[in-house]
Amino acid sequence: MDHTGKHVQAGRVLEWIDRAGYACAAAWSTSYCVTAYVGNVHYDGTIGPGAVVEVGAKVIHTGTSSVHVLVSVHARGLHDTEFNRAMHCILVLVAVDEHGKPHPVRAWEPRSIDDAARQKLALERIPVRTRIKDAMLAERYSGQGTAPRSTLRFVAGDNTANWAGNAHGGTVMRWIHEAAATCAVLLGAEHVRARYSGGIHFHRPIRIGDIVEVDARAILVSGTDIHISILVRSAPPRTPDKASLTTRCMMIFSAPNDQPRPASIEERTSEDRRLAAHAREIISHRSELTKIGDELLRASGSTH
C-alpha cells in the first residue's frame, strides 16, 4: 500500500507488469530475456486493498532479438463486476543466451486487424523512443541544480535476484518510484500520485551485492504535475566510488485537485533552466505518440 493505506503503491504494480512482460517474452522466445526498455507507463486508475487484479501481456512486435510486449492492468473491487483500467505500457525485452549475449527470436506476425493495430503502435514508438533516449543521454546533472532531490542508497539484496544473479527489472522500477515519490513530497505535495513513467532505459544489470544509488531530482512543476528525472547507479562494494549508470527514467506525479498544489521550482541557475527545458522537450516527444485505446488493451492476455 502507499502511505495513505488506500491504494496499492504504483511501484508494486510496476513489478507486476515486468513479471508479466518477462513471462510473455520468455514464452515467445523460449529463452531468458532481459528488460531493455519500458515506455509510456500510464497510471489510468488506482487499485484499492483487496481488489481483484488482472494483468494481461501480449507480444505485439519482434525485432532481431527483441520482443515488444503490451501489458495492461485492470482491477475491480471484490464486490464489483466490472474491471477498470489501472495501468498500461509497452515493454521491450531482449532474448539472451547463457553468456548474456542477444540472440535471434522467431518473427511474430499479426493475425487480426487488432494485432496489426498493436504492431503499428509498437513501430511508431521506435523512432520516438530513440529521440527520447538520445535527449536523456545527452543531459547532464551536477550539483548546480537547486530543485529538490532525493537519493536512496542501499545494497541490492538476494531477495531481488533473478536466476542470473541480477536485480529484477521490476524491482528496479519499484526503487525508482520510491525515490521519485519522496522527491515529490519535498515540494510540499504530500498526497501526490504517480501519473506517468517513461523513458525507462536499462543500460546494464545490477548485480546482487552491489551498492545501489537511486537519485531523483525534480526538474519541472507544471500546474499540479511534478516532472522528476531519476538516475540509478551501482558499484561493486569494494569500489563504491566507481558507480556507473544502470537505469534512467522520467516520472510525473500529480496532486489531486482537492489538495494544495506543489511548490514551484525557482529556476535560479543555468542548470535549473536547462533541465526544465529538457522536461518540456520530452513532453513534446511524447505528444507524438498515439494513445492506446481500451479495446486493444482488453484483448491482450496471451503470448500470441
Rank of each mutant, 00 (worst) to 15 (best):
A218V: 04
A218F: 01
I219W: 14
L220T: 08
G223E: 12
G223F: 13
T224D: 14
T224W: 12
D225C: 04
D225T: 10
D225P: 01
I226E: 09
H227S: 01
S229L: 03
S229I: 03
I230A: 02
I230E: 05
L231V: 06
V232D: 04
V232R: 10
V232T: 11
S234I: 14
A235G: 12
P236A: 15
P236H: 15
P237Y: 09
P237D: 07
P237L: 08
R238L: 04
T239D: 10
T239G: 03
T239K: 12
P240A: 09
P240M: 10
D241V: 00
D241T: 09
D241Q: 07
K242N: 12
K242E: 13
K242V: 12
A243V: 06
L245I: 10
T246S: 12
T246F: 09
T246N: 15
T247I: 05
T247Q: 02
M250N: 06
M250G: 03
M251N: 03
M251W: 06
I252P: 00
F253Y: 04
F253L: 02
S254A: 15
P256Y: 13
P256W: 14
P256M: 11
N257A: 14
N257L: 15
D258F: 14
Q259L: 07
P260Q: 12
P260I: 14
P260H: 12
P260T: 09
R261A: 15
R261E: 15
P262K: 10
A263D: 10
S264W: 14
S264F: 13
E266K: 08
E267F: 14
E267I: 10
R268D: 07
R268P: 04
T269G: 04
T269M: 02
S270F: 15
E271C: 11
D272S: 06
R273V: 12
R273C: 13
R274T: 10
L275W: 11
L275I: 01
L275P: 07
A276Q: 10
A276R: 12
A277I: 11
H278M: 00
H278T: 01
H278F: 11
H278N: 06
A279L: 06
A279D: 09
A279F: 10
R280S: 09
E281M: 11
I283M: 10
S284R: 07
S284A: 05
S284G: 06
H285D: 05
H285E: 01
H285A: 00
R286M: 03
S287E: 06
S287Q: 00
S287H: 06
S287I: 01
L289K: 00
T290S: 05
K291V: 01
K291H: 08
K291F: 07
I292M: 05
G293S: 07
G293T: 02
G293A: 02
E295D: 09
E295N: 02
E295V: 02
L296D: 07
L296E: 09
L297F: 06
L297Q: 00
R298K: 13
A299T: 08
A299G: 06
